[in-house]
Design a protein around this nucleic acid. Structure first.
Lengths: 199, 199
DNA sequence: ACTTAGTTTTACTGAAAGGTATAATTCGGT
DNA sequence: ACCGAATTATACCTTTCAGTAAAACTAAGT
């Protein structure tokens, strides 16, 4: 038997699709938009990824693996003081939200807001909810388990502190999406860090 | 000449349309959605409001007049100390974002994010930008002009402080949209108020 | 009661949506 | 060089989109 190789790079095409979803969201990203940016035809997309929803799920996973996960690692660098570690993480997140060479804002935050419109199919919706837990357990544990946090008594409000961190980052994502650059948003992050009593 | 009165209340219909746009955004709100909720037929909508874009503009104005404006008044109650005044305002905004009897989140914040998708017609886009200036001048002036703010030296960072207030409210709007209730977000607001150094 | 302006209903338009059947093409195995 | 299987391109499907033409209806002025 003879097999013919695909003429396009599936990973490159998926990355292109991710950027379209990042810009347009799920509902407004048409197959014409997607396939044009991916550089392939509709039947090629369907044979390679299944359908629009499956493509979205793979694109979302790509965002999580390449953007969310690596940034989250910054919270685990135990050799740094808690405040510095948290600040590094948040500033990195802000940097990505404002990256002039990429789509602005946060893919997850943007598409998550589409859930409330009822325009996203069930499987895709579940994935968005699963990876956008409010507030993220990693944030809660940071305040609950860290010795410095416990010493400062911040563990007693671990949930609230986690919510504050998450909420301000949602805010900066929204601002970044509207074109505000990093320099104008750094102060917001430092305000929250100071506000929750981290020294 | 003889005239026939409209059989539906234009204000009621517009309020219904506003709620559809609030839930779906501009692009995903279909005329079928809109007219069904408004309780009228398509030709009635076109004769009463013009077209989808004109309807959206009138709905947006209604939101500004009934929600944004009255809440903004709370910032002008000069008899209260600055901190209390600001906190009252922010808590009222949060209350509206989390109102269980209404759509969650902020109509302006939600629809503003659609601007970056390129799916909104020019006139509607301009209106969203015009009424969602970053950060709002009222916030800047609050820190620039208020005697208390000047005494605390907050006027020197009026722009940054305004941005922090605006950003956290965008964050809570995003959270509220995802179903988080008021009680879980109040702490975020107090964190920012404390963080910018308001006493 | 009749005329008539204005409203509402019905039925439609062309375009674009997601998705697919079919035919043309490409390329590895022999 | 040619066979055969997988991929690609073309052209189409049904549904839904925003928007509208025309007919049916409603009610005010006479």
């Amino acid at each position: 038997m003879a097999t013919t190789r695909r003429q396009f790079d599936k990973d490159v095409a998926l990355d292109a699709a991710m950027k379209v979803f990042w810009r347009k969201g799920y509902a407004s990203a048409s197959l014409a938009d997607l396939t044009k940016t991916m550089g392939i035809n509709k039947p090629s997309m369907y044979s390679a990824f299944g359908n629009k929803e499956a493509l979205f799920i793979k694109a979302t996973q790509l965002y999580i693996d390449t953007i969310i996960e690596p940034t989250g690692q910054l919270l685990s660098l135990k050799e740094l003081p808690l405040k510095e570690r948290l600040r590094n993480y948040m500033m990195r997140a802000l940097e990505l939200q404002c990256d002039p060479n990429n789509m602005k804002g946060c893919y997850l935050a943007f598409c998550r807001s589409e859930v409330s419109t009822g325009e996203i199919p069930a499987q895709a919706e579940n994935m968005l909810k699963e990876f956008d837990v409010i507030p993220p357990p990693a944030y809660i544990n940071l305040f609950k388990d860290d010795p410095e946090s416990i010493e400062l008594g911040l563990d007693k409000k671990a949930y609230e502190n986690a919510m504050a961190i998450f909420t301000i980052l949602k805010g900066t994502a929204s601002m970044a999406r509207s074109g505000v650059d990093k320099a104008n948003l750094e102060f917001c992050i430092d305000s929250v860090i100071a506000g929750i009593g981290l020294k």
